[in-house]
Amino acid sequence: MAAVEELAETVASSIDTSGEPIIRISGMHKWYGDFHVLKDINLTVQPRERIVVCGPSGSGKSTMIRCINRLEEHQQGDIVVDGIEMTGNLKNIDAVRSEVGMVFQHFNLFPHMSILDNCTYGPIWVRHMPKREAEERAMHFLERVRIPEQALKFPGQLSGGQQQRVAIARSLCMDPKIMLFDEPTSALDPEMINEVLGTMVELAETEMTMICVTHEMGFARTVADRVIFMDAGQIIEENKPNEFFSNPQHERTQLFLSQILH
């Protein structure tokens, strides 16, 4: 545990808080019809920062990170990702999406193509990479998530944990600057949660910028530079993980933590 904390410390100190943030969200609001889901979200993320977003269900965590690559549209405020302002401009949206990888709760692999094709289609069609190079790249990342032997199978033949690791490899093949994780372990059997978390921890060690919506507090404790707590569409509290867990400031946070930590 001490070693992990040390790692967290060194990584935290390596983050340059003075430089240009890679994501800047300011005064962002979102409505679903008349329902106000996100209220005045302000968040800046520095390059290489690892952020865990937690909170009760329906608090707007997923919606917030989905706004970052515009799977959801926000109605007010600004989102700037890697210097690109998110507006209705399709060019900007495509530019941001190719820089931001996303891992979903239900994996969302393409069931009609092999694992290898799942990993190569993005680089080939979006980055115009030659097929051979894309395949080498895909195999490299499949090895990193430790399932290169499954490359020619179809998603339906893999277990949930393996599918989620493929989904991570698929995102990495696009060489993203930011990775978004939307409850990546919530749909998995307990046995498989650890293999996916392990992959995510390894990824965190490569200094990737990560935003993870998750209920895995152990993961938050060991990996996150910052933990953000959301409730009812607002960011209630954000802090370093140690502080967040040992000394939550807000009453709502204390209640939430007392319910999920036994």
Binding site: N69, L71, D94, A95, R97, S98, V100, G101, M102, F104, H106, N108, L109, F110, Y121, G122, W125, V126, R170, M174
Partner: peptide
């Protein structure tokens, strides 16, 4: 499923 559209969108496919 909606997830298929979202996955291909988030890869930056047009």
């Amino acid at each position: 499923p909606k997830g298929q559209f979202e996955a291909s969108d988030s890869m930056g496919l047009k």
